[in-house]
């Protein structure tokens, strides 16, 4: 009897009867008779399933860490853009000043024809618009304390849609507004709440990859019930009789996976490829809503494909905290 060529430290991947995975580290040697026929096998196997599972987890953790690192770099880049915007504003405003003053001078020196005066007025109007955009950039990027005052959230929605007009057009997204014109005012920091709405609209745009419809709806109602028919968080935040203002941002994308629903508001959670978004938008949005003593939910639509982000805020008269 002799031995053939054996195999050392081979990893066997098998499935147990219950379907679970089994990893074995095996070394085997075939036994041969005098004619060289294999008559048996001698081997030893070590169950390394646990080690393999830990290895996989470690690999996945390392990958998550790598992605998080890239997202942190993205977030840092955004912070840098914020810091740079003051300098950019200065560099842009000086040429704008020249154009504006030049147009004002021409307007003061020319009596006609009307077409020329019209052109000059258009130039002045264009300068004003460009200047407004710079202000938006400056105000958006500069840190500031909370400044709460009663405001109509419909105006914020309209302003946000104006700011994101270009993004919506480029993404071929149709906008439907269903805004309650008798909406109760809400005590809020307009700039921060605008940031929250911008994040939600940008998120909705990002999930409608081949265009779609974005619906923005506002409404207010009085809380009449409590208990099991009302979300737990609502009963913690609002009481019977409170007026609640609701803003819904409804997309027509593919909807949310179970993972999305559970993790959407987690910092750095994103369904976008790395480098396209920081994964901080919804997390920041929730923090902003929390600062306003409100709540935010993100769920799949019940009337078709897509998701609904809903912000609930106490009406101005109800704010007691």
């Amino acid at each position: 009897m002799d031995t053939g060529v054996g195999e050392e430290n081979m990893i066997d991947h098998r499935r147990r009867a219950d379907g679970s995975e089994l990893f074995l580290l095996s070394s085997k040697v075939p036994l041969q008779d005098d004619l060289g026929t294999v008559i048996g096998l001698v081997g030893i196997s070590l169950d390394i399933t646990e080690q393999k599972t830990i290895e996989r987890k470690l690999k996945s953790t390392i990958q998550t860490l790598e992605e998080t690192k890239l997202q942190l770099i993205e977030a840092e880049k955004l912070k840098t853009i914020g810091r740079l915007s003051a300098g950019v504003a200065h560099e842009v405003k000086n040429p704008l000043n020249v154009v504006s003053l030049g147009a004002q001078y021409l307007e003061s020196q020319i009596e006609g024809p009307e077409e020329i005066l019209e052109i000059i007025r258009d130039i002045r109007e264009a300068v004003k618009k460009a200047n407004d955009v710079i202000f938006e950039l400056l105000d958006y990027s500069s840190p500031h304390e909370m400044e709460m005052e009663p405001a109509n959230i419909n105006q914020l929605i309209e302003h946000v849609l104006g700011l994101l007009r270009h993004n919506l057009l480029t993404a071929r997204i149709q906008v439907c507004c269903d805004l309650d014109d008798k909406l109760d005012p809400v005590r809020l920091d307009s700039q921060k709440m605008e940031q929250a709405l911008i994040n939600l609209v940008l998120n909705a745009i990002s999930v409608m990859k081949s265009g779609g419809t974005l619906t923005l709806r506002s409404s207010s109602w009085q809380m009449k019930t409590t208990g099991s028919n009302v979300a737990g968080a609502m009963t913690e935040l609002f009481e019977i009789g409170d007026t609640i203002v609701s803003v819904e941002i409804i997309d027509s994308g593919a909807g949310l996976s179970e993972d999305d629903e559970n993790k959407a508001f987690d910092p750095f959670y994103t369904t976008n490829p790395t480098g396209q978004g920081t994964g901080l938008g919804l997390s920041v949005t929730r923090s902003i809503v929390d600062l306003h003593h409100g709540m935010i939910t993100l769920e799949n639509r019940t009337d078709g494909p897509g998701a609904v982000a809903q912000i609930l805020l106490p009406a101005a008269t109800e704010t007691k905290k």
């Binding site: 003051a86 504003a89 200065h90 405003k93 000086n94 704008l96 000043n97 154009v99 504006s100 003053l101 004002q104 001078y105 003061s108 300068v127 200047n131 407004d132 202000f135 938006e136 400056l138 105000d139 500069s142």
Partner: peptide, 28 residues
Amino acid sequence: SAMVSKKEAQKGLYRSGGEHFLAKPVDT
């Protein structure tokens, strides 16, 4: 100055730290 917030710019002439300020772009 070009380094002025929208709120300050909307005031036209405004005072800050005892100084007079006006935002760019300037309206004659």
